[in-house]
């Protein structure tokens, strides 16, 4: 795809930030899908890592073209989401959160110790196949799909089960199926984001998908809110741009993120964009 010269210049200069905004937007949406059904997952970074590693291997070892690799990158994360979701989503409460933290740590240990995955050095030399338009096309499609699903019986069921799962079941909502569906959808979004990231940055390593990035992804949704799909994306953009603006304080990035989570929980329980989605199409 060719851009006009001024845009080309701009994209070249800020390419990394522009990619990060789109990819983090997708990650924020993957968090949103889980929170929207009243569950808490700390495995979004793990799902992203599964997408990144599986897609990098497909490119590096199998030499598959990117238009095959990108859609296929969601398969492994989706399978892991099913394996974790089926036993934990029957239970209410924090079981999913705990299981997904465990998943992240187990995977990190596997990445570190398997030679085929590059060990502590990670995988490098990944060809740059990600184009900016791919990231933003997928982001727009994801927002549109989630927006439309939100304005339907599924959106109403999701909000109902977030408020009161038992009452929602009595209304005929198959709560467990929706929770599982949401977790798989979130793993797909995170996996695709991971593949896009891997093919934008040349290198992936085990520490990019651990507990800290998981908390950062959660803070996108906490800051932005989960009233509409736009809210978590806004949160992601603010938290992605902030370190760029405050470059001098880059050592304090973790402190800023922590502070924002605390302030958001205390003063903005519904996030920055507290608007609520109308649950009807008409």
């Amino acid at each position: 795809m060719t851009y006009p010269p001024w845009l080309d210049d701009f994209l070249w200069t800020y390419q990394n930030v522009i990619h990060a905004l789109g990819i983090n937007g997708l990650l924020a949406l993957s968090m949103y899908v889980v929170l929207a059904v009243g569950q808490l997952s700390l495995g979004q970074a793990a799902f992203m890592g599964l997408g990144a590693y599986s897609s990098a291997l497909m490119t590096l070892k199998l030499h598959l073209p990117f238009f095959v690799v990108l859609p296929a990158s969601c398969v492994v994360p989706a399978l892991f989401a099913l394996a974790i979701g089926v036993p934990t989503l029957r239970l209410s409460g924090v079981y999913l959160a705990i299981a997904t933290i465990g998943l992240g740590e187990v995977l990190r240990a596997i990445y570190l110790n398997l030679d085929v995955l590059g060990g502590a050095l990670g995988l490098s030399g990944i060809p740059q196949r990600t184009e900016t338009w791919m990231i933003y096309l997928l982001l727009i499609v994801a927002i549109a799909v989630l927006w439309r699903v939100g304005h339907s019986r599924i959106g109403r069921a999701m909000e109902a089960m977030r408020e009161d799962p038992n009452a929602a079941q009595v209304m005929g909502v198959n709560v467990q199926r929706y929770r599982l569906g949401a977790l798989v959808a979130s793993a797909v979004l995170a996996g695709v984001a991971g593949a896009l990231g891997a093919h934008a940055s040349n290198f992936i390593g085990p520490n990019e998908y651990g507990f800290e990035p998981a908390v950062t992804i959660l803070s996108y949704a906490l800051l932005g809110g989960i009233g509409t799909p736009f809210a978590p994306v806004l949160g992601a953009w603010i938290l992605t741009l902030l370190p760029e603006v405050l470059r001098g304080f880059s050592d304090f990035r973790g402190v800023f993120n922590g502070l924002i989570i605390v302030l958001a929980v205390l003063f903005l329980p519904n996030g920055l964009l507290a608007l609520r989605m109308k649950r009807r199409a008409a």
Partner: peptide
Amino acid sequence: ENVLTGLH
């Protein structure tokens, strides 16, 4: 919307 949920 509450009543619509009852029609799920």
